[in-house]
Design a protein around this nucleic acid. Structure first.
Lengths: 242, 242
DNA sequence: CGTTACGTTGATAGGAATCAATGAGGGTGG
DNA sequence: CCACCCTCATTGATTCCTATCAACGTAACG
């Protein structure tokens, strides 16, 4: 744990220039000079622990953020019923766009594990790199296309939706160079249900079925090991042919 | 018909400065000088007839667009199965963001009726109003928040989803100063089904039930007249309490 | 050691999909 | 001009999937 904390601190002090996320995050689109300018607009020291809130629905918009390490969930709270999970974000992903149109955030972001966050001040950024907003549009576009995928996925059967979620996570871990055949679901069955529009019972049954079919194994209820990646891919691809 | 066409031509030649959509479209955020600069980057003469395609999924990104009059649908084509409708856009709404992240459009846009479209050239725009991209981010943000609403709506029962769709349309017509208690569904039952994730049969039954309940009346299958707006609102609000 | 939140599993019910038949409108070609 | 076809819409009967209800197991925590 202390080694872990130390490691974390090292990461926290890293500038955009040296950040390993380069290709996945904003610097991707920038040249060296601009990356240094970017650094001046970014606060790299925000640390969240599990459950900590980055911003709340209704809060006035201050800045965009990028996940540097860890992971966060994005929730929308409907009136009456509490928060419902809408997605999770991994390192390199830019969040906060939900607050731009109305100057108030429409969603709540909270940490699923100890996470470090970079805060991107838009006003500073405009001064330092006036052309940056065109690049940011790309990130917003990515978010839009993501919701298109969710839209499509939610038309599938319960089991397929669960598998699609696992495959999506796996792919995103892979893109980040992490182990992608084995990871922790950082959500409860209930939260997964909100995300996939299923009840916790159905999520549980689905996961157990996939385990019985020897496609994954589940340890400690949350730790997923993918045994047969091709099998999972086949499962969700059958539907497309028919 | 000729009077109609004439009227259309008049609209087509209108510049951003004189366009009645002002508040709903991009000029909303701009001062007078910038609006004239905007005009130089916008091609106002694109005319689509029912079924005409503005851009196709996979096409390389050229520019953003704004609907000036009429309406268009946005579709994503899954491999195997054909296009599925994901939404419709009304005058003043900015489209094309789906192509920014990968430089290729992820969706197909086609006209639901005779529509005029403004083409917004980003490169010109960058020259003319370097700060415009920050404003465009707002429009992208609106799109992101829209998908959040769809995400929520799709958790409701068939009937509520249908009512929510009608209410959303009605509200958007109202915002544009159109008649909002009476309008044409420009989608078939089948397309509506794709949008709401229902089968055409269920859409039909739902609409007929709402009609039987004296909340709307349906003429010629597509023309909707809202009889009891409060009743519709009550119908979708009950669920929030429970 | 009780409490609480989470997860699993079973039984049942309900809502929408599916299957099937029919009708209505629009366009085409004989 | 009419017969035919094709697409869209409607309505009914049935099936199937997932929600719901319920009971129990388990782990974390004070």
């Amino acid at each position: 744990m202390s080694a872990n904390a130390k490691n974390l601190f090292r990461k926290l002090s890293i500038s955009c220039k040296d950040c390993s996320l380069g290709e996945l995050c904003i610097p991707h689109d920038l040249d060296q000079v601009d990356i240094e300018r970017l650094d001046d607009s970014v606060n790299h020291t925000k640390l969240l622990h599990t459950g900590d809130v980055l911003y709340e629905q209704g809060a006035s918009f201050k800045s965009l953020y990028a996940v540097k390490s860890g992971s966060v969930k994005i929730c929308a709270s409907q009136e009456g019923s509490g928060d419902t999970v809408m997605g999770i974000y991994l390192p390199g992903e830019v969040i906060g766009f939900d607050g731009l149109s109305t100057e108030r955030h429409q969603c709540t972001i909270s940490a699923l594990e100890t996470s470090s966050i970079c805060e991107i001040n838009l006003d500073d950024l405009q001064k330092n790199i006036p052309t940056i907003f065109r690049k940011l549009l790309k990130h917003a576009s990515k978010r839009i296309n993501q919701s298109r995928d969710v839209f499509s996925a939610n038309k599938q059967s319960a089991e397929k939706r669960i598998v699609l979620f696992l495959l999506d996570l796996s792919k995103r871990y892979q893109q980040r160079g992490y182990v992608y055949t084995e990871f922790n679901l950082l959500l409860t069955r209930s939260e997964l249900g909100e995300l996939l529009d299923l009840t916790p019972e159905t999520v549980s049954r689905g996961l157990r079925k996939i385990e019985r079919d020897q496609l994954i194994s589940i340890q400690n209820q949350r730790h997923i090991k993918i045994i047969d990646l091709d099998g999972l891919n086949r499962l969700v691809k059958i539907e497309k042919e028919s």
